[in-house]
């Protein structure tokens, strides 16, 4: 068991990061900290994808012209490049989400004067009650 964990330590880190991220999103009341949690969660996924692309003793996935392989690279497998490519896209997505989220937070701060979830909810409730009266 321990050996399994140690040999797959990258997966263990991935799961740990995922949990930290989720915890931050759910437990934190500060909107910015939630976004940080979301970023940690996304980073965990990056790590996961990179891990599944790992090939034992693999090297850079470059196609060499015939007969021009540098010495030492003749019979070496190469890493699976596909997950890396996928993660380029996922990183872009992550950045976009963060950008939108931060833009929203700026607007929220301007409208409510705070970035704390409970204070925002309180303000909304207050307004609802005033609206009823």
């Amino acid at each position: 068991m321990l050996e399994f964990l140690l040999s797959h330590y990258n997966y263990a880190i991935y799961i740990a990061l995922m949990m930290i991220g989720l915890y931050a999103i759910l437990a934190r009341g500060n909107l910015v900290k939630k976004i940080i949690g979301l970023n940690i969660l996304q980073t965990a996924v990056f790590l996961f994808y990179i891990s599944i692309g790992k090939v034992d003793r693999g090297t850079v996935p470059v196609i060499w012209p015939a007969g021009e392989r540098p010495p030492g690279f003749e019979n070496v497998p190469y890493e699976n490049p596909l997950p890396h490519v996928l993660m380029l896209t996922a990183i872009v997505v992550g950045v976009s989400v963060t950008a939108v989220a931060l833009a929203l937070i700026v607007r929220i701060k301007a409208a409510y004067g705070t970035v704390e979830e409970d204070e925002i909810l309180e303000a909304d409730e207050l307004r609802d009650r005033e609206g009823d009266a």
Binding site: L31, K34, V97, V100, L104, Y112
Partner: peptide, 9 residues
């Protein structure tokens, strides 16, 4: 704004 944020999360 806040509804959009919650949806985002």
């Amino acid at each position: 704004l806040f509804a959009g944020y919650q949806y985002l999360i």
